[in-house]
């Protein structure tokens, strides 16, 4: 799994490539300080081909911590498989989910 970061309208977009699962979650959490600070971010999941419950748990934790500190996390580009996980666990009730990372970042910046 690789993690890339870029800025868009002063917002960090974290793009993940690979699988977000039990074995890769600890590495992912350490990969970027943007995941744990209080700033709003966008997580681009376009390159994620597999997400398990640990991966979902980690996204939920990031959202909780950010929201506790007044920040937010938005998700972008869920493929079919990921959408199924969100559907089954009802995680769609927690996240703002966008078609693409840029619109997520733009609207977050304008808010």
């Amino acid at each position: 799994m690789t993690v890339e970061e870029k800025k868009c309208h002063d917002l960090t977009i974290v793009s993940i490539n690979g699988s977000l699962e039990a074995s890769s979650v600890p590495g992912f959490m350490k990969s970027s300080p943007a995941l744990t600070d209080s700033q709003s971010i966008v997580i681009d999941l376009a390159g994620v081909d597999f997400l398990d419950s640990s991966g979902l748990g980690c996204l939920v934790t990031i959202a909780r911590k950010k929201r506790e500190q007044g920040g937010d996390v938005r998700l972008a580009c869920l493929n079919e498989k990921l959408r199924r996980v969100f559907e089954v666990t009802q995680a769609f009730r927690l996240f703002d989910i966008y078609d693409d990372a840029e619109s997520a970042a733009t609207t977050a910046a304008n808010k």
Partner: peptide
């Protein structure tokens, strides 16, 4: 198919599905 949050306005819905 796509998910939104309960209080999203129509503008937000379009934004979320901009692509």
């Amino acid at each position: 198919y796509a998910s939104i949050l309960g209080n999203d306005s129509i503008e937000t819905v379009i934004e979320k599905n901009r692509k």
